[in-house]
């Protein structure tokens, strides 16, 4: 059973996921529960989905254009980005773009999600992780603390490249190698 980590805690997953394979079901106003569906299903059936009681979410493939969801942000409770292989890093950029476009809700990494990538994923804007089935949730939580300081800005400010007053003040005042 895959573990869901949300806001750095192990939580119950209340969402039902519609597999992108197989026949696409038709949602009806009586369909209950929170549903996570592929972009194509969302595009085709968003009116029905929104007319029912439960919450709605979209799973993006890492080749989908996140721009397509901008106008739907207020109708969605969850956006997930699928990692087909953990070595396929496109999902990181998709997450950065979603955050830049103004997505403030839950951003979930799903698919080949392993503990050793959680630190980077978090810095790209993911706040929820549906771990690959073989991953141990408890030990995965440690990975959020792999590093205490990041060098570059991401969705956070990072260190040193944001005019960090401390790093400027702590440096000696004489310029010894002139970059100018």
């Amino acid at each position: 059973m895959a573990t869901l980590i949300k806001n750095k805690q192990i939580t119950q997953d209340h969402w039902q996921t519609l597999d992108s394979q197989g026949e696409t079901p038709h949602f009806e106003s009586s369909t209950v529960g929170d549903w996570l569906v592929p972009l194509s299903v969302w595009t085709a059936q968003s009116h029905v989905l929104c007319a029912r009681g439960g919450r709605n979410g979209v799973i993006l493939q890492n080749t989908d254009d996140p721009q397509l969801l901008v106008n739907d942000f207020d109708r969605l409770a969850l956006i997930a980005v699928h990692f087909p292989k953990f070595t396929d890093g496109r999902g990181y950029s998709v997450a950065r773009l979603l955050r830049r476009l103004g997505w403030k809700g839950e951003l979930r990494a799903v698919g080949d999600v392993l503990r050793d990538q959680l630190f980077y994923m978090t810095r790209c804007g993911f706040d929820a992780f549906l771990m690959r089935a073989d991953q141990d949730g408890q030990s995965a939580l440690k990975s959020f603390k792999d590093f205490s300081v990041p060098y570059q800005p991401a969705i956070d400010a990072g260190f040193r490249f944001v005019g960090d007053a401390k790093s400027v003040a702590s440096a000696p005042s004489v310029v010894t190698v002139n970059p100018w």
């Binding site: 953990f86 070595t87 396929d88 890093g89 990181y92 950029s93 950065r96 990538q117 630190f119 980077y120 994923m121 978090t122 810095r123 790209c124 590093f147 990041p150 060098y151 570059q152 991401a154 490249f161």
Partner: peptide
């Protein structure tokens, strides 16, 4: 900047 750049490790 490039060290542990979170977006560009894969």
């Amino acid at each position: 900047w490039s060290t542990f750049h979170p977006e560009f490790a894969f």
